[in-house]
C-alpha cells in the first residue's frame, strides 16, 4: 500500500533539502536530477503495486480518496 498519510519526520527540512539539491542547476540540469531521483526512489520502493498507485496518483491527484 502506498502511504499517503504524513510520513516525513521533518517535512520542512526534507522539503528544503530537495530545493537545495537543485540550487545552481540550469532548468535542464534540474530536470535531469529529478529524473535520476525518481529512478533511485522507484528502485528503493521496488514494489510494483505501490509504484503503480504512486504513478496513478501523480498523474491524477484528484483520484486520492479521503
Amino acid at each position: 500500500m502506498l502511504i499517503t498519510t504524513p510520513n516525513l519526520t521533518k517535512p520542512d527540512e526534507t522539503y528544503a533539502a530537495l530545493i537545495a539539491t537543485h540550487e545552481g542547476l540550469s532548468e535542464a540540469g534540474s530536470h535531469a536530477l529529478n529524473a535520476r531521483l525518481i529512478l533511485i526512489l522507484m528502485n528503493h520502493i521496488g514494489n510494483d503495486a505501490v509504484l503503480a498507485e504512486a504513478l496513478r496518483l501523480a498523474r491524477d491527484p484528484e483520484s486520492a480518496q479521503g
Binding site: 535531469a32 529524473a35 535520476r36 529512478l39 533511485i40 528502485n43
Partner: peptide
C-alpha cells in the same frame, strides 16, 4: 530525459 538518467546512473549503480 529518463533514458539518459538511466544511462547516467548505470555507470555507477547496478540497479540502473
Amino acid at each position: 530525459l529518463f533514458r539518459n538518467a538511466v544511462l547516467e546512473l548505470a555507470e555507477h549503480l547496478p540497479f540502473a
